[in-house]
Computed example of a mutant assay.
Amino acid sequence: MDLPYAKERHVAELAVQRAALLTKKMLRAIDKGTISKSDQSPVTIADFAAQALLISAIHHNLPDDSFVGEEAADTLREDAQLQKRVWDLVSEKYLDSAETEALLSTPASSEEMLDLIDLGCGPGGRKGRVWMLDPIDGTAAFMRGEQYAISLALVENGFEKIGVVACPNLNLENGKVHEEQVDKEGFGLMLSAVRDQGALIRPLSSGELQPAHKIERPVDVQNREDLHWVEGTTSKSNDFEKQQTIAKSLGGSWPGTDVYSSQMRYIALTVGGGNVNVAIPKKRDNKSWVWDHAGGHLILKEAGGLMTDLNGKEIDFGAGRFLGENYGRVVAPDSMREEVMALVESILAESKKGK
């Protein structure tokens, strides 16, 4: 008998693998078709094309499910040349197996491609099944040939059920995640999880899914010197002064493993690169997009990790396109969690006094 969500997981893993192959092809292109969004973050034609393929695969197999994705097709509708470049990418075959390509489905026209991309403009919420996706998390790192991710997660009635994250440049030869330690020979790695079924890791390939093995996180640390931080120092929304103060109070080196992509930080915390992360927003009303966390969060949790917000609340994926019910984030080993949370509480209390 198949485990719960077996079909959804299989389709999601194949869909993410196909999107990862698309991005790997684009890495070889000199001109990645880069434009800027309203928040000045870069987006490439690969972002649009990967979103179209991800949604196409899920929508074909699970037509009643809805989507929350990062991209919208407005720019492509206004720029015929850019639209053609994305369509050319979407139209290609990426998996060696024709049977698998047929299972996933591909848009039949450029207009259908645009409509599929726009399915990602859904509101999310607590009711029904919502697929949350980031076609390329860490686009700037992708453009530099560093670590980036393709993420896809199923959230049902507000709870993560499936998480799949492909890391096409990930090379874990020394057991650590580094921006510049890139898989130049293969296709990188994929991590996936189903709620209450554990987390798996496997090599990405150009054909069928490769064999996977269960992720076993290291034994819980007992000493401060065993703490290793995972950070993203390019973030414009986090208070690094407070985060560094916490790290120094615990005696750890900061920033430790410094990676640009939000999803890659989850991967580093799961398979190698660190065991503690604290994110303190500069502003109380700072909002995080759900697709920067959905998927990677479940994989970390199913591998034995724990992340809450700064108030100790579980992460809520049912509040819409943002994590509107959570403030900041904390990941820490069980043995050190109480101490880390106490430091966070103290620093936030001091900050309030100073205002």
Rank of each mutant, 00 (worst) to 15 (best):
M264W: 00
D74W: 04
F322Y: 15
D31A: 08
S261L: 07
E70F: 01
T233S: 13
N169A: 06
S249R: 13
S41I: 01
G33H: 06
N238I: 08
V331G: 00
L133G: 00
A29R: 15
I280E: 00
K283I: 05
D88G: 00
D183T: 12
Q222C: 04
F48G: 09
Q222Y: 03
E71A: 09
A72Q: 13
G122D: 05
D88S: 07
Q181R: 07
A6E: 14
I162A: 01
T257E: 02
L103P: 01
A73K: 05
I45Q: 07
H59T: 10
N171Q: 07
S36H: 13
I136N: 08
L200P: 02
R217S: 14
S235E: 12
G120V: 08
L343W: 05
M190H: 06
D65E: 13
K282S: 06
K287A: 13
H297A: 11
N286R: 11
P211Q: 07
V331K: 00
T139K: 06
P211C: 11
G138K: 02
K24H: 05
V11P: 05
K352D: 12
S41D: 04
R9C: 04
K214W: 02
D258V: 08
P107A: 02
S97W: 00
F142E: 12
L3F: 14
G175V: 04
W131N: 09
E156A: 11
T139Q: 09
S237D: 13
G272V: 09
W289G: 00
L191K: 02
T23F: 01
L119Y: 04
V271R: 04
E8C: 07
A108F: 03
L54R: 08
G186D: 12
F67H: 09
D115F: 05
E345Q: 14
